[in-house]
Design a protein around this nucleic acid. Sequence first.
DNA 1: CATTGTGAAGCGGTTCACAGCT
DNA 2: AGCTGTGAACCGCTTCACAATG
Lengths: 266, 266
Amino acid sequence: MATGRTHRPATRSRGIPEATVARLPLYLRALTALSERSVPTVSSEELATAAGVNSAKLRKDFSYLGSYGTRGVGYDVEYLVYQISRELGLTQDWPVVIVGIGNLGAALANYGGFASRGFRVAALIDADPTMAGKPVAGIPVQHTDELEKIITDNGVSIGVIATPAGAAQQVCDRLVAAGITSILNFAPTVLTVPDGVDVRKVDLSIELQILAFHEQRKAGEEVTAPEEAAGAVPPPPVPHRAPSGGPGADSGRQGPDGDVPAVMPA
Amino acid sequence: MATGRTHRPATRSRGIPEATVARLPLYLRALTALSERSVPTVSSEELATAAGVNSAKLRKDFSYLGSYGTRGVGYDVEYLVYQISRELGLTQDWPVVIVGIGNLGAALANYGGFASRGFRVAALIDADPTMAGKPVAGIPVQHTDELEKIITDNGVSIGVIATPAGAAQQVCDRLVAAGITSILNFAPTVLTVPDGVDVRKVDLSIELQILAFHEQRKAGEEVTAPEEAAGAVPPPPVPHRAPSGGPGADSGRQGPDGDVPAVMPA
DNA sequence: CATTGTGAAGCGGTTCACAGCT
DNA sequence: AGCTGTGAACCGCTTCACAATG
C-alpha cells in the first residue's frame, strides 16, 4: 500500500519491485557499517546475514539495480553504497517538515537518523501558539499559520505528521495543497490523499496488537492448544448475530477515549 | 517477517493469514469509532472505506474469523468489535516494558494508544542512573539492573526497545533471557533472537528513504524522464567495478556517525 | 434484492537450483 | 573453485465474480 494508483505504465522503465525498494535501506545500513570498518568487498551471503535477509533474495534484489557484483568475488562495498544511495535518491538532500511537536514530534526532530541520510529538518510546525519560537532540537518551532509559506519557501516535498489523530487529515490536506507529495504519518488515522501523493504510516498501537495476537497464540499452544486457552475469556456473546443486548463482556474497554489523541499534546 | 520459522504445521488450525492479522487492528479502530457514534451495523463497503481497504479484501479477511455478518444487512458493530478484540488477544491486558527512556521512549510512555487497547506500561527502564526514580508519564524510571526482576515479577511478555542502536542487541538478549517473547524494536538494527520470539521493527529512517525513492521518481518524470533528473548528481564513479579509488563523490555522506545512536540519549 | 461468503483466477514476491563469469 | 545473476517453480495474498442467503 501507500503507493500511487495504477501507477504509470509509462516509460515501461526498469520497475523495481516495491518489496525490494523497502529492503534497500536495510542493505544500505549494513553496507555503511562495513564501509566504516573499511571492508572492501562482501559476498551476498555475508551481506544478507548482516541485513537480516537470505542471500537469494538479496541477489535477486540487486539484480533489479543492475549487475554490480563480481562473480567469484562478491560486491564492492563502496560502489554498492553509492549505487543504492543514488537509487534511493539519497545523493540529494531532502528538506522535511515535521508537523505536531509533542513528545513524538520532538523525538523525531532529535532523531539523528534523518540528518545522516540526506534528510534535513527544514522546519518544525505546531498549532500551539505558546510553542512558537521555542527551539526544539535547535530549531525554533513555527506556528501552523506559516505552514504554506514554509513549504513553498523551502521547496519541501516530504512532510511528517505527528499530530493527534483528530488534526491529521486537516494538516494532511494543507500539506498537500501546499505542494507536499510524500507523507509519513504517525497519527492513528487513515489519511485520504489525492492520486500522486504517497503516504506511509507508522502505527505504534497496531504493531503492538499484532504482537499480542502472536503472543496469545503462543500462550494457547503451551497448554495443548485447547479452544479457549486460559479460559479467562468471557462466554461468546451469542451463537450468531447479536443485535439484542450488548457484545458480551466489555467491548468498550476502559475509558471511551476512542482512538486516543495520539502521542503529543498539540 | 518477524514471525517464527517454518511455523508449526501443528493443530492444522484455522490459520489466519499474516496479512489479515495486520489489518485486524485497522478494522478494530474503524469499528470502535462507529461504536462510539452508536452505529449498529455496517456493510463491508462502508467499513472498508473507513479502514482504507477494499471491500473484497475485508470480507475475505472476516471470512477467516468466521461468518460474523448477515447477508443483505452487514455486520453488527458491537459484535464484531468483540470478536476482533478477542481474536487479537485484547480482551486480556498485556503488561509491557519500555527500555530506553529518551525522547522516543518518553513519547511511547505517554502514548495513549497503548492503555486504550489492552496494553499497560508496567515499567520504564533506562541505563542512565540519574534517570532512576524520575517519573515519566507518571511512572518512575527504573535502572537496567532491575530488568530481569521487573519482567519476572510482572509477568511481562512484551518488550519495547527504544535504546540507541548500539545497546539494542544486548538489551534484547537480556529481555529474551528474562522471558520476553515479543519485541517491538525502534532501534535501527537487525536484532537476532531465538526461535519462538517475535520481533517487529519500526524504523523511521527506512520509511523516509522509501518515500524519497518514490519522490525522486516523481521528480524525474516531470521532466520527460531523463536519466539523471536534476543533474546535480555527481558523475557515476565508474562504468563497472570500482575497486580503485573511492566511490565517486561522497559515499560517506556527512559525518561518520554511522547508523546514528537513534533517538534517545540513553 | 442487497450484501455476505467464497471458489477460482491473477499477481507479486520468494525460493530454488543451476548456468554463466571471473 | 567460487559466487553472482536469473529462469522457473512455488507460495501467499489480492481481486474477481457469483452463488448463497437472510
